[in-house]
């Protein structure tokens, strides 16, 4: 059982996860931000490895990805930076990025490295479920890496059931049909969608992401799911010159 699965076993509510882009704002800020987030109460972390063409992301993460690439960030370099991860960070860590970067690194290499440095799972939005199931699931299992799938308001129940079967940590509920960084509208439609998912009694817990930007949206998400993920709003608030302080101030506003 990896750290992520352990976490979900003993904590069922009010989980807070934060996303940030590796190599942003400065190349070597990755571990510094991870440490500051743990110290300020994040339950688990998502570290993004940048890609030149992030189609699921809005302007904030597009920009942080571009800056990180300009700074010289690569997946290989991120794994180097993470060699000391488990000396400094105890909470579960996920890597998030696009499939082409993983394919070029090699899927087996990627999983092996994740295990070595102490990464517990990953989110690869453009890796299709059937590809994962046919080709990659055995490799992920071999190294004990959890693959996280996304579900949206348009996802059919049949598809959700299948995702639930293939998941072994949590399901990522995308709050509305949008790219990252839009604000969550608490419409009847969104509420109905969250209620619909709860009613399905899935075996995996659900965490809501996309559009969670402040205490208000975080609290709302928590009434319908086990927790929430904040990405763009956090990335926007990082102050390159005062990393620790800006992380602390942001986290204080959420919890």
């Amino acid at each position: 059982m990896n750290r992520l699965q352990q976490l979900f076993q003993h904590k069922k509510k009010d989980l807070l996860s934060i996303y940030f882009t590796a190599g942003y704002p400065n190349l070597n800020d990755t571990l510094k931000i991870a440490q500051a987030l743990e110290q300020n109460g994040a339950d688990f972390l998502e570290i993004g490895f940048p890609y030149s063409d992030p189609v699921a992301d809005g302007p904030v993460i597009q920009q942080s990805s571009k800056t990180a690439l300009d700074n010289g960030m690569t997946l290989a370099l991120l794994f180097e930076q993470l060699e000391d991860l488990r000396k400094q960070v105890t909470v579960p860590v996920l890597l998030m990025g696009y499939v082409n970067v993983v394919l070029q690194y090699g899927v087996e290499n990627f999983c092996k490295k994740c295990l070595e440095v102490g990464v517990d799972g990953c989110i690869i939005p453009d890796l299709p479920m059937y590809e994962y199931e046919e080709l990659y699931q055995p490799v992920f299992k071999k190294y004990g890496i959890s693959n996280i799938f996304l579900v949206t308001p348009q996802t059919t129940e049949e598809h959700i059931r299948k995702i639930d079967e293939l998941s072994n940590a949590f399901i990522y509920l995308v709050s509305s049909s949008s790219t990252t960084g839009n604000s969550l509208e608490l419409s009847n439609q969104a509420t109905q969608y969250f209620q619909h998912i709860s009613a399905l009694k899935l075996k995996n817990p659900q965490i809501i992401g996309f559009g969670i930007s402040d205490k208000n949206t975080y609290d709302t998400a928590n009434t319908y799911a086990s927790g929430a993920i904040i990405g763009s709003a956090f990335v926007k608030n990082i102050d390159a010159n005062h990393i620790e302080e800006s992380v602390k101030n942001f986290m204080k506003k959420i919890r």
């Binding site: 299709p128 996304l150 949206t152």
Partner: peptide, 20 residues
């Protein structure tokens, strides 16, 4: 029938685009 030409093709898209 899987959307491939030999080893190429497929539909590598985020879940948000899957229904479309």
């Amino acid at each position: 029938e899987r959307g491939y030409y030999g080893e190429f093709g497929g539909a590598y898209i985020p879940e948000m685009l899957y229904p479309n």
